[in-house]
Design a protein around this nucleic acid. Structure first.
Length: 242
DNA sequence: AACAATTGCAACCGCCATGTT
DNA sequence: AAACATGGCGGTTGCAATTGT
């Protein structure tokens, strides 16, 4: 019954990887793949005195081709912040929206920089869901099934720009106008419908209020309206981070 | 220049879901 | 069906680098 333990934790090397170890692991995986079994990989790769889990982590977070390190763009910042507000600290899911970024990188980036940058802006964080459960389906009808008071953006793909979010009241009301891009009408927290959501069917015809502006900016970026989203974001940033 | 404090991030730890025996 | 291994994930730690005094 069962299998042998994955490795002898007392004898395997820990800590930072040397260039030689990196080379050995990279060359082996590029030549043979990981074979679906990380535990036996160190043995198969030769004298790699590392735990299989450590090999997996090193490959996925550092050695794997096409991984981007550092220099997150403003767009990436917003996508991360928005997804964090929507789904909480499900870093692997967030990473799946940012090609080339790893969950570990995003987690570190959030914890060291973005958390401060967006402090006060991300006010309602979704509770952690049970792992490996499918995410709540927000695509069917309106209002979507909101668990707790977490902001929700409709997942892509989507045909019509529509933004759903609760409007936190603790920041009070203020109007955000994006010059030359949108009109001047605004959404106030009074506009909430009974479900706690506000619907914006045609965001290009509105300016936004409070966190709605933040949600709008992130959503617009997701709708590939980069220029507009970036403009909204700049205004939000100027307001919050001055 | 020396030391302390802070920051950034790679890597480890432990938990949980799933797969295997 | 039960017991265990494995893969995957998020939280946390430890240390090197950087910044401040």
């Amino acid at each position: 019954m069962g299998r042998a333990p994955c490795c002898d934790k007392a004898s395997v090397k820990k800590g930072h990887w040397s260039p030689e170890e990196d080379k050995q692991l990279k060359e082996y995986i590029e030549k043979h793949g990981h074979g679906g079994n990380w535990i036996t990989l160190p043995r198969r790769a030769g004298r790699l005195n590392r735990c299989g889990k450590s090999c997996r982590l090193r490959w996925l977070n550092y050695l794997k081709p096409n991984i981007k390190h550092g220099c997150f763009s403003g767009d990436e910042d917003w996508i991360i912040a928005n997804l964090y507000a929507s789904i909480g600290s499900r870093w692997s899911v967030i990473a799946s929206h940012l090609p080339g970024r790893t969950d570990n990188d995003i987690k570190n980036y959030w914890n060291t920089k973005l958390k401060k940058k967006f402090s006060g802006l991300i006010v309602a964080q979704a509770p952690r869901r049970a792992r490996r459960k499918p995410a709540a389906n927000c695509t069917g009808g309106f209002p979507p099934s909101l668990d707790e008071a977490s902001p929700v953006l409709l997942p892509l793909p989507i045909t019509e720009p529509q933004i759903l979010f609760p409007l936190p009241s603790q920041y009070g009301n203020f109007d955000l106008t994006v010059p030359d891009l949108v009109g001047t009408s605004s959404i106030n927290t009074d506009d909430q419908n009974p479900s706690g959501c506000t619907t914006v069917d045609h965001p290009e015809s509105y300016s936004y209020t409070g966190d709605a502006a933040a949600a709008a900016a992130a959503a617009l970026l997701q709708f590939n309206m980069e220029e507009y989203g970036a403009a909204v974001w700049s205004s939000v940033e100027a307001m919050y981070l001055q």
